[in-house]
Design a protein around this nucleic acid. Sequence first.
DNA 1: GATATAGATTGAAGACGATCGATCTGGAGT
DNA 2: ACTCCAGATCGATCGTCTTCAATCTATATC
Lengths: 117, 117
Amino acid sequence: MAVDLELTPKTKRAPGEPCCEPVVYPDVDRERALRMAEVAKAIGDPIRLQVVDVLRKHAGKVCVYELEPLFDVSQSTLSHHLKKLRDAGIVDSERRGLWAYYYVLPDALDELAAWLG
Amino acid sequence: MAVDLELTPKTKRAPGEPCCEPVVYPDVDRERALRMAEVAKAIGDPIRLQVVDVLRKHAGKVCVYELEPLFDVSQSTLSHHLKKLRDAGIVDSERRGLWAYYYVLPDALDELAAWLG
DNA sequence: GATATAGATTGAAGACGATCGATCTGGAGT
DNA sequence: ACTCCAGATCGATCGTCTTCAATCTATATC
Protein backbone atom coordinates (compact mmCIF):
# COMPACT_ATOMS: atom_id res chain seq x y z
CA MET A 1 0.00 0.00 0.00
CA ALA A 2 3.02 2.27 -0.31
CA VAL A 3 2.28 5.49 -2.14
CA ASP A 4 4.12 5.66 -5.43
CA LEU A 5 5.49 9.07 -6.28
CA GLU A 6 6.91 8.13 -9.65
CA LEU A 7 5.93 9.71 -12.92
CA THR A 8 4.07 6.61 -13.98
CA PRO A 9 0.32 6.41 -13.61
CA LYS A 10 -1.29 5.89 -10.26
CA THR A 11 -0.84 2.13 -10.21
CA LYS A 12 1.56 -0.27 -11.78
CA ARG A 13 0.63 -1.90 -15.02
CA ALA A 14 1.31 -5.37 -16.27
CA PRO A 15 5.07 -5.70 -16.78
CA GLY A 16 6.19 -5.72 -20.37
CA GLU A 17 2.79 -4.64 -21.59
CA PRO A 18 2.53 -0.89 -21.93
CA CYS A 19 -1.04 0.29 -21.75
CA CYS A 20 -0.73 2.87 -24.51
CA GLU A 21 0.96 6.05 -25.62
CA PRO A 22 1.92 8.59 -22.98
CA VAL A 23 -0.81 10.70 -21.45
CA VAL A 24 -2.15 13.24 -23.86
CA TYR A 25 -4.00 16.41 -23.14
CA PRO A 26 -6.94 17.65 -25.15
CA ASP A 27 -5.97 20.28 -27.71
CA VAL A 28 -9.36 21.79 -27.01
CA ASP A 29 -9.23 23.48 -23.63
CA ARG A 30 -12.14 23.48 -21.25
CA GLU A 31 -13.43 26.93 -22.21
CA ARG A 32 -13.50 26.12 -25.89
CA ALA A 33 -15.08 22.77 -25.11
CA LEU A 34 -17.80 24.52 -23.11
CA ARG A 35 -18.53 26.95 -25.93
CA MET A 36 -18.66 24.30 -28.63
CA ALA A 37 -20.62 21.86 -26.48
CA GLU A 38 -23.21 24.56 -25.86
CA VAL A 39 -23.70 25.04 -29.59
CA ALA A 40 -23.75 21.29 -30.23
CA LYS A 41 -26.30 20.80 -27.48
CA ALA A 42 -28.51 23.50 -28.97
CA ILE A 43 -28.62 21.76 -32.34
CA GLY A 44 -28.82 18.40 -30.57
CA ASP A 45 -32.57 18.29 -31.04
CA PRO A 46 -34.08 17.41 -34.41
CA ILE A 47 -36.59 20.23 -34.36
CA ARG A 48 -34.02 22.86 -33.48
CA LEU A 49 -31.68 21.49 -36.10
CA GLN A 50 -34.39 21.76 -38.75
CA VAL A 51 -35.28 25.25 -37.57
CA VAL A 52 -31.67 26.32 -38.01
CA ASP A 53 -31.64 24.64 -41.41
CA VAL A 54 -34.70 26.58 -42.59
CA LEU A 55 -33.36 29.84 -41.22
CA ARG A 56 -30.02 29.27 -42.89
CA LYS A 57 -31.46 28.39 -46.27
CA HIS A 58 -33.57 31.53 -46.12
CA ALA A 59 -30.71 33.75 -45.31
CA GLY A 60 -33.25 36.50 -44.87
CA LYS A 61 -35.65 36.58 -42.05
CA VAL A 62 -38.43 34.11 -41.41
CA CYS A 63 -41.15 34.78 -38.90
CA VAL A 64 -42.33 32.31 -36.31
CA TYR A 65 -45.74 32.35 -37.93
CA GLU A 66 -44.36 30.69 -41.07
CA LEU A 67 -42.21 28.35 -39.05
CA GLU A 68 -45.05 26.95 -37.01
CA PRO A 69 -46.86 24.80 -39.59
CA LEU A 70 -43.58 23.09 -40.52
CA PHE A 71 -43.21 21.39 -37.19
CA ASP A 72 -45.45 19.07 -35.32
CA VAL A 73 -45.25 20.84 -31.99
CA SER A 74 -47.30 23.45 -30.21
CA GLN A 75 -46.64 27.14 -30.53
CA SER A 76 -45.27 27.34 -27.02
CA THR A 77 -42.89 24.46 -27.63
CA LEU A 78 -41.56 26.05 -30.80
CA SER A 79 -41.15 29.32 -28.95
CA HIS A 80 -39.21 27.47 -26.28
CA HIS A 81 -36.91 25.93 -28.89
CA LEU A 82 -36.30 29.34 -30.42
CA LYS A 83 -35.36 30.67 -27.01
CA LYS A 84 -32.82 27.88 -26.61
CA LEU A 85 -31.27 28.77 -29.94
CA ARG A 86 -31.22 32.42 -28.92
CA ASP A 87 -29.63 31.60 -25.57
CA ALA A 88 -26.96 29.56 -27.33
CA GLY A 89 -26.14 32.55 -29.53
CA ILE A 90 -27.08 30.73 -32.72
CA VAL A 91 -30.03 32.86 -33.78
CA ASP A 92 -31.42 36.27 -33.02
CA SER A 93 -34.77 37.86 -33.69
CA GLU A 94 -36.20 41.19 -34.60
CA ARG A 95 -39.73 42.35 -34.02
CA ARG A 96 -41.72 44.11 -36.71
CA GLY A 97 -45.32 44.74 -35.89
CA LEU A 98 -46.92 41.58 -34.67
CA TRP A 99 -44.26 39.33 -36.11
CA ALA A 100 -40.91 38.18 -34.87
CA TYR A 101 -38.31 37.54 -37.56
CA TYR A 102 -35.56 35.07 -36.81
CA TYR A 103 -32.18 34.67 -38.45
CA VAL A 104 -29.02 32.69 -37.89
CA LEU A 105 -26.16 34.77 -36.55
CA PRO A 106 -23.16 34.78 -38.86
CA ASP A 107 -20.18 32.82 -37.50
CA ALA A 108 -22.32 31.25 -34.79
CA LEU A 109 -21.57 27.75 -36.02
CA ASP A 110 -18.08 28.36 -37.32
CA GLU A 111 -16.01 27.23 -34.37
CA LEU A 112 -17.84 23.91 -34.10
CA ALA A 113 -17.82 23.42 -37.86
CA ALA A 114 -14.08 24.03 -37.97
CA TRP A 115 -13.41 21.61 -35.15
CA LEU A 116 -15.52 18.90 -36.74
CA GLY A 117 -13.36 19.33 -39.79
CA MET B 1 -49.95 19.61 -36.61
CA ALA B 2 -49.43 18.49 -40.16
CA VAL B 3 -48.41 20.86 -42.87
CA ASP B 4 -51.32 22.85 -44.22
CA LEU B 5 -52.03 22.12 -47.85
CA GLU B 6 -53.58 25.48 -48.57
CA LEU B 7 -51.52 28.22 -50.02
CA THR B 8 -52.52 30.71 -47.41
CA PRO B 9 -51.67 30.54 -43.74
CA LYS B 10 -54.28 29.41 -41.29
CA THR B 11 -55.52 32.87 -40.41
CA LYS B 12 -55.58 36.19 -42.16
CA ARG B 13 -52.73 38.55 -41.68
CA ALA B 14 -52.69 42.27 -41.35
CA PRO B 15 -53.79 43.71 -44.68
CA GLY B 16 -51.06 45.23 -46.77
CA GLU B 17 -48.37 43.79 -44.57
CA PRO B 18 -47.16 40.41 -45.76
CA CYS B 19 -45.68 38.38 -42.93
CA CYS B 20 -42.84 36.95 -44.96
CA GLU B 21 -41.87 34.72 -47.85
CA PRO B 22 -44.07 31.74 -48.63
CA VAL B 23 -43.85 28.69 -46.40
CA VAL B 24 -40.56 26.92 -46.79
CA TYR B 25 -39.72 23.35 -46.00
CA PRO B 26 -36.54 22.21 -44.34
CA ASP B 27 -34.02 20.82 -46.81
CA VAL B 28 -33.01 18.45 -44.06
CA ASP B 29 -35.72 15.83 -43.66
CA ARG B 30 -36.72 14.42 -40.32
CA GLU B 31 -34.60 11.28 -40.56
CA ARG B 32 -31.45 13.18 -41.40
CA ALA B 33 -32.28 15.67 -38.65
CA LEU B 34 -32.64 12.81 -36.16
CA ARG B 35 -29.29 11.31 -37.15
CA MET B 36 -27.42 14.60 -37.02
CA ALA B 37 -29.12 15.73 -33.82
CA GLU B 38 -28.10 12.48 -32.14
CA VAL B 39 -24.46 13.11 -33.02
CA ALA B 40 -24.69 16.76 -31.97
CA LYS B 41 -26.27 15.79 -28.67
CA ALA B 42 -23.50 13.28 -28.01
CA ILE B 43 -20.82 15.94 -28.39
CA GLY B 44 -23.06 18.42 -26.57
CA ASP B 45 -21.21 17.82 -23.34
CA PRO B 46 -17.81 19.41 -22.75
CA ILE B 47 -16.25 16.24 -21.38
CA ARG B 48 -17.45 14.10 -24.26
CA LEU B 49 -16.33 16.72 -26.73
CA GLN B 50 -12.85 16.74 -25.20
CA VAL B 51 -12.77 12.95 -25.17
CA VAL B 52 -13.55 12.89 -28.88
CA ASP B 53 -10.88 15.52 -29.42
CA VAL B 54 -8.23 13.46 -27.66
CA LEU B 55 -9.25 10.30 -29.50
CA ARG B 56 -9.17 12.10 -32.83
CA LYS B 57 -5.77 13.67 -32.29
CA HIS B 58 -4.41 10.28 -31.41
CA ALA B 59 -5.76 8.63 -34.46
CA GLY B 60 -4.64 5.35 -32.93
CA LYS B 61 -6.19 3.86 -29.88
CA VAL B 62 -6.17 5.31 -26.41
CA CYS B 63 -7.17 3.28 -23.39
CA VAL B 64 -9.57 4.48 -20.74
CA TYR B 65 -6.80 4.23 -18.19
CA GLU B 66 -4.91 7.06 -19.89
CA LEU B 67 -8.06 9.04 -20.43
CA GLU B 68 -9.09 9.06 -16.80
CA PRO B 69 -6.56 11.47 -15.29
CA LEU B 70 -7.38 14.05 -17.96
CA PHE B 71 -10.88 14.63 -16.71
CA ASP B 72 -12.16 15.66 -13.35
CA VAL B 73 -14.83 13.02 -13.06
CA SER B 74 -15.04 9.59 -11.51
CA GLN B 75 -14.20 6.43 -13.42
CA SER B 76 -17.84 5.41 -13.64
CA THR B 77 -18.85 8.80 -15.02
CA LEU B 78 -16.19 8.66 -17.70
CA SER B 79 -17.27 5.14 -18.57
CA HIS B 80 -20.82 6.37 -18.88
CA HIS B 81 -19.76 9.18 -21.23
CA LEU B 82 -17.87 6.67 -23.36
CA LYS B 83 -20.98 4.55 -23.57
CA LYS B 84 -22.94 7.55 -24.83
CA LEU B 85 -20.37 8.14 -27.52
CA ARG B 86 -20.52 4.46 -28.45
CA ASP B 87 -24.32 4.49 -28.56
CA ALA B 88 -24.23 7.51 -30.85
CA GLY B 89 -21.92 5.65 -33.21
CA ILE B 90 -19.09 8.13 -32.76
CA VAL B 91 -16.53 5.87 -31.14
CA ASP B 92 -15.92 2.20 -30.74
CA SER B 93 -13.65 0.20 -28.48
CA GLU B 94 -11.53 -2.88 -28.54
CA ARG B 95 -10.43 -4.89 -25.55
CA ARG B 96 -6.89 -6.10 -25.15
CA GLY B 97 -6.09 -7.69 -21.86
CA LEU B 98 -7.30 -5.52 -19.03
CA TRP B 99 -7.49 -2.45 -21.16
CA ALA B 100 -10.14 -1.04 -23.46
CA TYR B 101 -8.88 0.96 -26.41
CA TYR B 102 -11.17 3.60 -27.86
CA TYR B 103 -11.09 5.21 -31.26
CA VAL B 104 -13.28 7.55 -33.28
CA LEU B 105 -15.13 5.82 -36.09
CA PRO B 106 -14.22 7.22 -39.49
CA ASP B 107 -17.02 9.25 -41.11
CA ALA B 108 -18.97 9.36 -37.85
CA LEU B 109 -18.92 13.14 -37.78
CA ASP B 110 -18.97 13.76 -41.51
CA GLU B 111 -22.67 14.31 -42.10
CA LEU B 112 -22.92 16.87 -39.31
CA ALA B 113 -19.67 18.54 -40.33
CA ALA B 114 -20.88 18.83 -43.91
CA TRP B 115 -24.22 20.30 -42.87
CA LEU B 116 -22.54 22.84 -40.61
CA GLY B 117 -20.53 23.92 -43.60
C1' DG C 1 -7.12 -20.67 -6.03
C1' DA C 2 -6.41 -16.09 -4.20
C1' DT C 3 -5.82 -11.44 -5.00
C1' DA C 4 -5.34 -7.17 -7.57
C1' DT C 5 -6.82 -4.32 -11.30
C1' DA C 6 -9.22 -2.00 -15.73
C1' DG C 7 -13.39 -1.04 -16.93
C1' DA C 8 -18.55 -1.73 -17.26
C1' DT C 9 -22.85 -1.77 -14.87
C1' DT C 10 -26.17 -0.69 -11.31
C1' DG C 11 -28.86 2.21 -8.31
C1' DA C 12 -29.89 6.52 -6.56
C1' DA C 13 -29.79 11.67 -6.24
C1' DG C 14 -30.69 15.93 -8.17
C1' DA C 15 -30.59 18.88 -12.19
C1' DC C 16 -32.19 19.67 -16.65
C1' DG C 17 -35.10 19.10 -21.06
C1' DA C 18 -39.34 18.57 -24.01
C1' DT C 19 -43.82 19.21 -24.13
C1' DC C 20 -48.40 20.99 -23.38
C1' DG C 21 -52.40 24.12 -22.16
C1' DA C 22 -53.17 28.38 -20.17
C1' DT C 23 -52.05 32.94 -19.54
C1' DC C 24 -49.77 37.26 -20.38
C1' DT C 25 -48.01 41.09 -23.59
C1' DG C 26 -48.09 44.40 -26.87
C1' DG C 27 -49.17 45.93 -31.45
C1' DA C 28 -53.23 46.40 -35.12
C1' DG C 29 -57.73 46.85 -36.68
C1' DT C 30 -62.38 48.19 -35.83
C1' DA D 1 -61.93 51.59 -25.72
C1' DC D 2 -62.37 47.04 -27.18
C1' DT D 3 -61.08 43.05 -29.74
C1' DC D 4 -57.97 40.14 -32.19
C1' DC D 5 -53.76 38.10 -33.10
C1' DA D 6 -48.39 36.73 -33.01
C1' DG D 7 -45.49 35.35 -29.92
C1' DA D 8 -43.42 34.99 -25.21
C1' DT D 9 -43.86 33.24 -20.64
C1' DC D 10 -45.78 30.34 -16.79
C1' DG D 11 -46.77 26.09 -14.38
C1' DA D 12 -46.97 21.33 -14.51
C1' DT D 13 -45.70 16.71 -16.00
C1' DC D 14 -42.64 13.37 -17.23
C1' DG D 15 -38.64 11.71 -19.08
C1' DT D 16 -33.66 11.98 -19.71
C1' DC D 17 -28.85 13.54 -18.15
C1' DT D 18 -24.96 13.95 -15.08
C1' DT D 19 -22.90 12.34 -11.35
C1' DC D 20 -21.37 9.44 -7.65
C1' DA D 21 -20.31 5.23 -4.69
C1' DA D 22 -20.84 0.55 -4.82
C1' DT D 23 -20.80 -3.61 -7.17
C1' DC D 24 -19.83 -6.76 -10.79
C1' DT D 25 -16.80 -8.88 -14.56
C1' DA D 26 -12.87 -10.29 -16.84
C1' DT D 27 -8.18 -10.66 -17.01
C1' DA D 28 -3.48 -10.88 -14.95
C1' DT D 29 -0.22 -11.94 -11.40
C1' DC D 30 1.19 -14.63 -7.42
